[in-house]
Amino acid sequence: MTTTADLQQQDQAHDHHHDTGGDTVFGFWIYIMSDCILFATLFATYAVMSTSFAGGITPKDLFDLNFVLGETALLLFSSFTFGMAMLYAHRKSMPGMITWLCITFALGVGFLAMELYEFHHFSTSGASPQTSGYWSAFYGLVATHGLHVTGGLIWMLVLFAHFKRDGFSKANMVRLACLSLFWHFLDVIWICVFSVVYLMGVL
């Protein structure tokens, strides 16, 4: 970001907008890094609470790995389809980008629906957030990820409106690049969630 070449570029007025875009994406990257710390605290809490069942129901009784595999597949494919949308955006192909972004949105909604169904199923099976320290930590961690996905979906809807109004403007490309980072980041966090929470939970 601060190489000599970049500094020289900044001197040239006509390149000013480019640097602004790059800085915005980098700034968003810094936000994502700080979000990592949020998730780290939740994972640490989960790890500390991992055996605090208070005599209540345990994850071994409830977790269905086939179901989790479905959620994982939806989110992994949505990360891939967002990548495809980015490629079409670079080619300035509106129908291609919108199509892939719609597929991404649908997969994201599917993931969220599965997660909400799972929460409902767990809550009615005797594992609500009040049940024990373990389940408080579980809902705190998994629902925070779910809220991020919800935020990403709302952001995607807003971006549809932006692209419909302004097309492939520089500002829209920067917004799309930021959302792309955010969406891939959520997939990376989900890898940690299914590994630490679900797979280790049934061991």
Binding site: H18, D19, G21, G22, V25, F26, W29, M86, L87, Y88, H90, R91, K92, K170, M173, V174, L176, A177, S180
Partner: peptide, 18 residues
């Protein structure tokens, strides 16, 4: 394009990069 997504330093044309 590079700056828009902050990546792909080796791209020269959108088609090839894609």
């Amino acid at each position: 394009n590079n700056l828009a997504d902050g990546q792909h330093s080796d791209t020269h044309s959108p088609g090839g990069a894609a």
